[in-house]
Design a protein around this nucleic acid. Structure first.
Length: 601
DNA sequence: GCGATCAGCT
DNA sequence: CACAGCTGATCGC
């Protein structure tokens, strides 16, 4: 259950997945998906009053989430305030303070989250850096490397903060079988049962939430039937789902519910009571999350829990390993948990997450000091004109996106750091000084050795390696070598397909993109199916709001700094030059000494 | 009467 | 066991 309070420290003028208290004053709202724990306060009278008194505040979400939200009459008042955004289509929005007229520009991109229909992650790019809010997500290993909008100029974007779904970020949930593995097992179980006779029916004991539709559609396809559910209204604009569910009770597969479902099943009756003749044979399947700390159990995706009753593994959230993969790939400067896993504490999960963070300044951002030259030039101009309204003279965050956050403000002169080569940035002091060595983690104490081995497999990347690693490729190689033999799968090299990908035009219509590398898609194209199921296109597209999208006519407007490439290929200040290794070494020496960097040599 | 919150349950 | 959410009790406004 999400405990995210709604606001990110980088962009406090917007609120996500939370609509009460301080969030009432947000300049814009974002809803990642339609689960109740992400909709706190969304129909409160206070919020309604706030919306009525505003002419500008909007709610941004995916088209599917819009449909699901408006399928409830209680939420119909939102209709005039919702702006559906297509997936993978960067959109510039203005956050206007209606009292002062002050405005802040932000580019938001929706990325598929694989959690439930319509679920997305939000990537924000603005003056305060690139920030990713994941909402809830289930992404498989390697999925993050396929997300084009998390890359720029052939590299991962410089991500300042990730607000991450940490529901299962706990070594107890080290690995959860893939969605395809779980669904295939359920399909086999159902198939064996319904083939026995027409009176053999299956009851899927699903909780009341969106997220099982993927299972329903798959079963419908496999057995050429429809699944009996309680309500079709929410899917009325989603033919991809609607064609596999029904209100007709005469089907062999049911996902209907009743307050006394359990008693019904024991009496061989279905919750919809169509089996009152007691001649039905009901097989109960309860989707639930299981965990597999030991690989020898990894095949157990279905377990018998009683007479004609099974539990089947089914998770809406990424496993520990998948979250670790996700964060290790992005290497954010900071990461914050949206959820405190059961039995853990905020401090513990935060410390665990920090181990995945960037441990040193990114090499490809090493030339960022040139940003200083640009800034300095602007400051000179400012003495002649006026300072830009958004300039924050006290903040040097945007001078050294990665560095400033990673380094103490003033380093002691006793620093051991004496860079003398081009490799200087790599020797810069380590970030996250309070990150505890993993051996100290309380998680490890209570685990048996086999779990610890798995755990260490997945956490040792990027540590204890001071060798030259000049590019992204090397970084990834290191990470995956650390996972050799782990159930995390084979190491993908995202460059292999990203170059291909960069030649594909993004259609911007929220369609699932095909996997770009056969090596990554897996034998069953799991990813493709998942994304197709979760990013359903709707007839009501965002075309009504196409005015929001950047187009060619805007191309000559300056992009926020975070929108430009993370590479050094950003447009340079006129007359500026790439620094020589010697100049760079001097710069870093001054940085390490805590000297004023605003005076170029 | 309504909303917020919590315990209990599935 | 663990995913989300319903129901009912209680309290405050």
């Amino acid at each position: 259950m999400s405990s995210f309070a709604g606001r990110m420290k980088e962009y406090p003028n917007i609120s996500l997945d939370c609509f009460d208290r301080d969030n009432l004053h947000a300049r814009a709202y974002f809803l990642s998906h339609c689960h109740k724990d992400h909709m706190r306060g969304i129909k409160a009278p206070k919020l309604k009053r706030r919306l009525r008194s505003s002419s500008r505040v909007k709610l941004y979400c995916s088209p599917v989430t819009k449909e699901l939200l408006l399928s409830s009459r209680k939420h119909l008042f939102w209709e005039q305030y919702i702006v559906p955004l297509e997936l993978e289509s960067p959109t510039q929005i203005s956050l206007v303070d209606e009292a002062s007229g002050e405005s802040e520009e932000l580019v938001v991109t929706l990325l598929p989250a694989g959690h439930c229909p319509g679920s997305v992650m939000f990537l924000f790019e603005g003056r305060r850096g690139n920030v990713l809010y994941t909402g809830d997500f289930r992404l498989a290993l390697g999925d993050v490397a396929r997300m084009e909008h998390l890359h720029s100029g052939g590299r991962v974007k410089d991500i300042r903060s990730v607000y991450v779904d940490s529901t299962f970020f706990d070594p107890r949930f080290y690995q959860i079988p893939s969605r395809e593995t779980c669904v295939s097992a359920i399909v086999r179980l159902v198939g064996d049962w319904v083939a026995r006779s027409a009176l053999h029916v299956v009851w899927l004991n699903c909780k009341a939430a969106y997220g099982y539709e993927y299972l329903f559609t798959r079963l419908g396809q496999e057995f050429n039937t429809r699944v009996h559910v309680d309500n079709l209204l929410m899917f009325r604009r989603m033919p991809e789902i609607l064609s596999y569910v029904t209100r007709e009770r005469r089907t062999q597969i049911h996902a209907c519910r009743h307050r006394k479902s359990q008693q019904y099943i024991h009496g061989n009756r279905l919750p919809c009571a169509c089996g009152t003749g007691a001649d039905l044979r009901v097989l109960s399947i309860k989707p639930s999350t299981m965990w597999f700390g030991e690989r020898t159990h990894a095949g157990d995706v279905v377990i018998k829990s009683g007479n004609n009753a099974f539990r089947a593994c089914f998770s809406f959230h990424s496993s520990y390993c998948e979250v670790k993969d996700f964060l290790s790939y992005l290497q954010p400067v900071q990461v914050f948990p949206n959820v405190v896993p059961m039995g853990s504490t905020l401090a513990e999960v935060t410390r665990m997450l920090r181990m995945t963070c960037r441990k040193r300044p990114r090499d490809d951002l090493a030339y960022k000091p040139l940003g200083l030259l640009k800034r300095r030039r602007r400051c000179h101009l400012a003495t002649l004109t006026t300072a830009p309204p958004d300039a924050d003279p006290d903040s040097d965050d945007d001078l050294f996106d990665g560095l400033a956050a990673a380094l103490p403000k003033k380093l002691p002169r006793t620093s051991q750091h004496h860079p003398d080569e081009h490799s200087a940035p790599q020797a810069a002091p380590q970030a996250a000084p309070d990150a505890t060595p993993e051996e100290d983690s309380p998680w490890l104490v209570a685990r048996d050795r086999s779990n610890i081995n798995n755990f260490m497999d997945c956490t040792e990347s990027n540590d204890d390696d001071d060798s030259e690693e000049d590019d992204q490729s090397d970084r990834d190689q290191t990470k995956w070598l650390g996972q050799t033999g782990s159930p995390c799968g084979e190491p993908p090299k995202w460059e292999d397909f990203f170059t291909v990908d960069s030649q594909n035009n993004l259609n911007g219509q929220g369609q699932a993109r095909r996997p770009l590398s056969p090596a990554l898609s897996g034998p069953s194209s799991e990813r493709e199916d998942d994304v197709a199921a979760f990013s359903l296109s709707l007839s009501a597209s965002a075309s009504d709001h196409s005015w929001q999208k950047r187009d060619a006519s805007e191309a000559d407007e300056p992009l926020p700094s975070s929108q430009s490439s993370s590479d050094f290929d950003v447009a340079c200040t006129p007359d500026s030059k790439r620094p020589t290794p010697e100049q760079l070494a001097r710069l870093y020496r001054k940085l390490a000494d805590g000297d004023d960097l605003s005076c170029p040599d």
